[in-house]
């Protein structure tokens, strides 16, 4: 008689998770993979194309241009929002009744739906009736985000900074609040200057939350769609057509499911790879 040592019944316990992950990640992703290697002319008839769409996308000037715009946009907003957010968090009060006032004020932009943010800035920036647009023009600055690429970029970046710097502030503030009082006391006794306190105590203690802030802002801004779509629609011309806006044009405007699938996968891999590289490199020193 043999004794069965392994019990396979435990697989049933994992089943709900497998089903959940399948429906929310694997199946949609595989659909995209499926489209990316086939050609379709409608009527649900598909032809096998192999890696043709991938080659086409990677050699396409249009993809390269929207990717460059995307990279530029993300770099600019990260360069502004991270230092700016840290600076605001550092200058916020740490104790007393004003803390909650500041935190609520900071959280407000985060509570506004994205398309509303786009619509708000659209109206706010209109050169003829918007407060910002009218004000800039009356100062003699030729500003029209519907016509000029520079104005459009300025508005999109300003909008993102307004909408999302708060997230960096809140995370940085959480990091700052967790620094024990003794560090500040020791720094005082050691005669440290205010800058040395920021440099050697506050920034190192904020490192982990800033990595999270950076990753969140990187991913979100790299995938940004709703706000610029509502604000500029990707224009003027293609000036603010970021990757996601371009992707939607390809997938839903032109109904090119194959190339759209290929773009989606490349897009996804870029984000995944960047996050992984960034996280691994920054956390390298923190083995313990």
């Amino acid at each position: 008689m043999t004794v069965k040592l392994t019990n396979q019944k435990a697989w049933f316990l994992v089943a709900p998770v497998v089903v959940l992950v399948a429906f929310n990640a694997v199946i949609p992703l595989m659909t995209v993979v499926n489209y990316s290697v086939q050609e379709s002319f409608g009527n649900n008839i598909f032809f096998w194309e192999g890696v043709k769409w991938f080659e086409e996308v990677l050699h396409s000037e249009r993809f390269a241009a929207s990717l460059m715009r995307q990279i530029f946009f993300t770099s600019v907003i990260l360069l502004i929002e991270i230092p700016f957010g840290v600076a605001i968090a550092l200058s916020m009060p740490r104790k007393g009744p004003w803390v909650s006032v500041c935190l609520v004020l900071m959280a407000l932009p985060l509570l506004i739906p994205w398309n509303v943010v786009g619509a708000m800035w659209n109206i706010f920036s209109l050169p003829d009736i918007g407060l910002l647009g009218k004000a800039l023009n009356s100062l003699g600055i030729g500003y029209d985000y519907t016509q000029e690429p520079i104005s459009a970029w300025f508005t999109v970046i300003l909008m993102d900074v307004w909408h999302w710097t708060s997230l960096v502030v809140l995370l940085a503030f959480a990091g700052l609040s967790s620094i024990p009082e003794a560090y500040y006391h020791a720094a005082k006794i050691d005669g440290a200057s205010p800058w040395a306190i920021v440099r050697y105590i506050e920034l190192p203690k904020m490192k982990r939350v800033l990595i999270i802030a950076f990753l969140l802002r990187f991913m979100d801004s790299f995938m940004i769609y709703t706000e610029p779509f509502v604000l500029t629609g990707g224009g003027p011309g293609n000036a603010t057509t970021f990757l996601s806006i371009d992707l939607v044009k390809v997938a839903l405007g032109q109904f090119d499911l194959g190339p759209a699938g290929a773009i989606s996968l490349i897009y996804f891999l870029i984000i995944l790879l960047t996050c992984w590289l960034f996280y691994t490199l920054t956390m390298k020193d923190e083995a313990q």
């Binding site: 003794a182 006391h185 020791a186 005082k188």
Partner: peptide, 21 residues
């Protein structure tokens, strides 16, 4: 007189070191 001008050293309950140094 503020602490940095008092010629006093203090060691706290929880060790304070400057992590990046």
């Amino acid at each position: 007189t503020p602490p940095e001008r008092r010629n006093i050293a203090q060691v706290f309950q929880f060790p304070v070191v400057y992590d990046t140094m």
